[in-house]
């Protein structure tokens, strides 16, 4: 049997972190017990016209207390509904979904961009390595940054140059002369393309977490595919399912 569950669960806290970014803790012991960094859950809307579950990455897992934390951006009607929920409200959840990160490397760089930052937090906590964290933001609104500080050295890039390196995450890596034997990354596709190019050029192994519009979230509908280098053994074509085979892939496995 699988370790996935689908059930109604209770929100234990729901707070606004910054403009459009929200943090929610859920009491869900089975998911907390089974979940790994880099996995995600599906949240279901109460509004009946919104049928599809919303895939959201897991930001933190508290196995002792049976809690799961999600940090998400309000991107549409579904996430807007979640942002209006409060502690004590119930919400339907399915998870844990996807493969998650493989924990490896001795000296690693975790690269998060925008709403790709949250899943890097549980990863930073879980790795037994020398952890360097590079976070890319648009401006000086540095949500979650301080929470990474206990787990590694944190470097920041901002598009407007207000904090840290002006530019992108790769600019920050270069400016700080960071070295690593392993890279983990999650963020917008243009950033992941840059991370892939950087990792390949420098011969560093890298895992990246992808995003795509999903329907079922469990690998049945084939909505959320990415292009794979090799013919995939399940689909029998050069497509992998992000929700099931991913969301985490080694950079050399896929075409971005």
């Amino acid at each position: 049997m699988s370790d996935k569950v689908i059930k109604d669960t209770i929100i234990t806290s729901s707070v606004k972190m910054s403009e459009g970014i929200y943090s929610m803790w859920l009491k869900e012991e089975e998911i907390a017990k089974a979940a790994k960094p880099g996995q995600f859950v599906s949240l279901y809307c109460k509004e009946g016209s919104q049928l599809l579950p919303r895939p959201i990455s897991i930001c933190e897992i508290d196995k002792k207390q049976g809690l799961v934390r999600l940090v998400y951006r309000v991107a549409g009607k579904g996430t807007l509904e979640f942002s209006n929920m409060q502690a004590g409200d119930s919400i339907k959840i399915m998870g844990p979904l996807g493969n998650g990160f493989t924990l490896e490397g001795k000296k690693v760089i975790l690269i998060g961009g925008g709403i790709g930052i949250p899943p890097m937090l549980e990863l930073a906590k879980s790795l037994d390595a020398n952890v360097q964290v590079v976070l890319g933001y648009r401006d000086g609104d540095l949500f979650l940054k301080e929470e990474f500080e206990p787990y590694g050295t944190v470097y920041v890039s901002t598009e407007d140059g207000s904090v840290g390196t002006k530019g992108n995450v790769i600019d920050a890596i270069n400016e700080n002369n960071l070295e690593a034997d392993m890279i983990f990354s999650c963020g917008p596709t243009p950033m992941l393309k840059g991370v892939k190019a950087y990792a390949m050029k420098n011969g560093i192994k890298a895992q990246i977490s992808l995003e795509e519009k999903m329907a079922c979230g469990i690998g049945a509908c084939l909505a959320c595919v990415c292009k794979s280098k090799e013919k995939d053994s399940h689909t029998n074509v050069n497509n992998k399912r992000i929700c099931k085979d991913g969301p985490v892939f080694y950079v050399e496995e896929i075409d971005l």
Binding site: K213, L222, A223, C224, V225, V237, N238, N239
Partner: peptide, 12 residues
């Protein structure tokens, strides 16, 4: 085998 269409493939 058919590779299907480019993404995005669905929208609510």
């Amino acid at each position: 085998p058919w590779p299907g269409n480019p993404t995005p493939r669905i929208a609510e």
